[in-house]
Design a protein around this nucleic acid. Structure first.
Lengths: 200, 200
DNA sequence: AAATAATATCGCACTGAGTGTAATTTTCAA
DNA sequence: TTGAAAATTACACTCAGTGCGATATTATTT
């Protein structure tokens, strides 16, 4: 088989391409099995088999079984920060974050959100690490906020803003699952932020 | 050795007494080893040996290794709720919770708080489950708040209050560790709650 | 006191996650 | 083409956690 006969010429290097492919296969296999037979009941051997790799290779791509689920969650922090940077400078911190969250979450189908949320609830360890990832989001947001409002006396305030914003997001996300998607996410998020204004 | 020679007559049944003793021995052994050689590096075999029980018996007392550290954390939720119930009825929700937190945390030595906090940071899984326990505290507080302010239209608001209060507690606790106990916990907590008022 | 039930303790064998190591194969670059 | 770097694999290992069944200890009943 000569190289000239390959029609799908790799644009970004064959290595990178294969890597992405394998990563996707593992994630798909994992998600598929998790939904099919539950998170705890799915073993790494099964995932590896379905993804067509060895068990050892799985650990070349993921740090742990949890990471299959959490890789999705963990990307959120960076996305939020990026979206926040694109918000107009004159908005109040809380509104800027709210709109950043809206922008990041808008393209995610509600059904996917709910499905992943349900999966995460099925394992205590995963659920815990999801909560922990919220704290990471808070930290990331706080750092981004401080760039824009660098006065030292605002620090505690900005920490709280980040905390409240992520909290509101959590509330909206919980409500989405609880109501099983009856109302859209952006409505719930607005409601949570409005309630935040009314409180205190 | 006849029973009549026992001076420490068990008041609450020998079984209950032994149980408490064993529980304490396991916790002590665990804490001791965790501090000495780190959380991850300590095995259940070592803990069991030091506590004078078999490895299997450990699981009769704890659900997991994490639980040694988390049993301390998990009691907090109930204590907060109990303290909240004893607060005067006319206080605003946020102030009532703040004072409840103060009452619960006052008797805990700052050094202990810091030491446990440091230990929990050393394991990602434990750290994650600690964050998750905060969520449990929020839920418990929310339930307690709803008893006092049962109007349905206040629900979202009360959820947020619980969230902000626990958030402020987290902030104060983080600051305590970060400053290595330079300022007392109650000062930091007041600061966090005051900042909360100023925000929004 | 003896018999009986309930609770505690333990050992053993097992599953499954995760790691260390070293060998082999595949891709990339000189 | 050749040699370095990255990817894949097998194997053997440690450790957390579970299921099961046996034995010991404490409580309760007769």
């Amino acid at each position: 088989m000569t190289r000239s006969s390959d029609q799908n010429a790799p644009r970004e290097g064959l290595r990178e391409h294969k890597r992405r492919e394998t990563l996707r296969r593992i994630t798909d296999a994992g998600m598929c099995l998790f939904i099919e037979k539950g998170y705890e009941a799915t073993t790494l051997d099964e995932i590896a088999a379905k993804a067509g790799i060895s068990r050892r290779t799985f650990f070349y791509y993921f740090k742990s079984k949890d990471d299959i689920l959490l890789s999705l969650q963990n990307g959120m922090g960076d996305m939020l920060v990026a979206a926040l940077r694109e918000e107009p400078q004159d908005k109040r911190p809380l509104h800027a974050i709210r709109d950043a969250i809206l922008k990041v979450c808008a393209p995610i189908p509600a059904d996917d959100m709910i499905a992943i949320d349900r999966l995460m609830r099925s394992s205590e360890a995963v659920q815990a690490r999801k909560q922990a990832s919220y704290i990471q989001h808070e930290k990331a947001l706080f750092a981004a906020l401080r760039e824009r409002w660098p006065k030292p006396e605002r620090e505690t305030g900005l920490r709280l803003v980040a905390m409240m914003a992520i909290g509101a997001m959590r509330l909206a996300s919980d409500a989405l699952s609880r109501e099983d998607g009856k109302r859209p996410f952006d409505e719930l998020l607005h409601e949570a932020f409005d309630a935040l204004e009314g409180e205190i």
